[in-house]
Amino acid sequence: MSLSEFWDFLVLGVVLGSLYAVIAIGYTLVYGVLQLLNFAHSEVFMFGGYGGLLALTALIPETTPSGMNSVLYVAIGMLAGAALGGAVAFGLERVAYRPLRRHNAPRLVFLITAIGASFFLYNLAGKLFGRNALPMPAMYENGTALTVFGAELTVTQLLILVSAVAMMVLLDYVVNRTKMGSGIRAVAQDPEVAALMGVDIDKVVSRTFVLGGLLGGAAGFLFGTNSQVWYTMGFLPGITAFAAAVLGGIGNVRGAMLGGLVLGVVETMTVGLWGDDWRYVGAFVVLVLVLMVRPTGILGERLGRTA
């Protein structure tokens, strides 16, 4: 691999990794407060893609918008994706998980419910939106936006990168600097004491799901813009993002971001070196190696403190 190819693939890897990072946050937040592996998060992501797609299909004009109009439509798509993602995550928590918490169901029941909810949601999407993949309507002319070390970044890639970083910075602020964030961290540390201190656990859990859902939905919109939208599109990115959350230290928000970036770069580099059939081999070898040395992930577990 020549140096210029190295930069090419590195840039692609960072773009993909930033998407993984945003999805991974959804897994890690929920794990932090509930110790639940919410496998239905990949479907929240998928619905985000459809949210953006439906809003844009309804609103966008025949000719490809340009200038400020492009910005407007991107914003509409992203907000619609985030809104539908948040709504699905909210509903998921209410319908699937809250009744289980009421009955103090064992951990395994939560896991199976998560898988069941995932099946239900993607088949529902297949019924509602059809099983053919759909293209995201063009919001701008997708040419080269800028060149970094000889690697060309398209408008879409730049959009993904910028919005993913913005979302991560915003989320980091929310978790560490706001009242809602301290609620989330308190429940993650010790739910019983948090409840005694007057934290409404149900509310915090619900908000955590919505927060993860907003990010997951926006990521679904970005992913759909980069490729296309279809009813099982959540599966592979979902699994990879879950691995990213584990790699960074599940329950740890900054760990999820780091893990996502690392996996995105490793995957894409592997593809550049050995071809696409080795994509997940490279990624999961790195995952296993890291977990052998640091079983709790790169930055360690738990949202509040290490367990």
Binding site: G13, V15, L16, N226, T232, G272, G275
Partner: peptide
């Protein structure tokens, strides 16, 4: 493989 999440690396290849 089918359903690769990101075809940009494949295209570069």
């Amino acid at each position: 493989p089918q359903k690769t999440p990101d075809y940009s690396a494949a295209a570069k290849n």
